[in-house]
């Protein structure tokens, strides 16, 4: 039997993620105004903007934790169809548990701080129905290893770990089931600069090895520049500019983007 090893890679042209015209208000705060976003398979979409611009709200929508007032959301995945905001709680939970991984800015949101680190990763596998202790342990270890987490601390609770290590546990949990989409909300904010660089390296390596589609949110343009293929600039709940990273960084069109890019240079 011969394998077609040299067959050309199929060029994907359909976007994996598509958010269309999403708006959301909390009483009198317009957190999101007519926001659209797109990411192609294997791409990193960077969302940048000042604090309060609606980045986290958009990410929570992508993780189906919240429903907008208007707008739609589709993921081009097998067995996933239609506007995902119309799914019920149970279907959302199953979709998020198996196909989407998320890393929150605040590890307290994503982790059980007093359980073991491996247990935090195992929880993800348990929700997906894994019931063998040996397999849970093995897969949790593999995911933590891929997140470059020190394995001698495998069973240490996150509460005893540094911020950088906590983010690695979150990351391991997020990738344990090999999700199609990885959402990262300010994954390096609050970390020391040197630790920040290490976590970014890990993310880069993961992206290259696994070709996971990622959406990374940050107020730090440097982080976005390091990782993103495609960039969205947000301000006061609206998208001011979006496009390919090179284009945005070399030739920003909107005054706000120009200000951001030049401040960073």
């Amino acid at each position: 039997m011969t394998l077609a090893l040299d067959a050309p890679r199929i060029v994907q042209t359909r976007p994996l993620l598509q958010v269309q015209s999403v708006s959301k208000s909390y009483s009198d705060v317009h957190a999101l105004r007519d926001v659209s976003a797109i990411a192609y398979p294997g791409e990193v979409l960077g969302v940048v903007g000042e604090s309060g611009s609606g980045k986290s709200t958009l990410l929570r929508m992508m993780n189906l934790e919240e429903t907008p007032d208007t707008g739609s959301y589709t993921l081009d995945l097998p067995d996933v169809a239609g506007n995902l905001f119309e799914l019920d709680r149970f279907a959302r939970r199953m979709l998020c548990a198996t196909r989407i991984g998320i890393v929150y800015q605040n590890p307290h949101l994503g982790l059980l701080m007093k359980h073991s680190s491996s247990g935090n990763v195992a929880e993800r596998l348990l929700v997906a129905g894994e019931r063998s202790f040996a397999v849970l342990r093995e897969k949790a270890t593999t995911a933590l290893e891929a997140s470059e987490f020190p394995l001698e601390r495998l069973d240490a609770p996150p509460i005893e770990l540094s911020g950088g290590m906590q983010q690695r546990v979150q990351l391991a949990k997020a990738i344990a089931l090999e999700p199609a989409l990885l959402l990262l909300d300010e994954p390096t904010t609050g970390l020391d600069v040197s630790v920040q660089a290490l976590v970014l390296d890990t993310l880069k390596r993961l992206q290259q090895d696994r070709q996971i589609t990622m959406v990374i949110v940050s107020h730090d343009l440097g982080v976005i520049r390091t990782l993103a293929d495609r960039v969205m600039v947000m301000r006061r709940g609206a998208v001011v500019e979006a496009g390919l990273a090179d284009q945005i960084f070399q030739d920003p069109q909107h005054a706000y983007t120009q200000q951001l890019v030049h401040a960073k240079l």
Partner: peptide, 16 residues
């Protein structure tokens, strides 16, 4: 939702 993963997590933690 028969969402009982955490019950097994409790057993996992005990074994660990």
């Amino acid at each position: 939702d028969a969402d009982y993963g955490r019950m097994w997590l409790q057993l996992y933690e005990q074994i660990v």
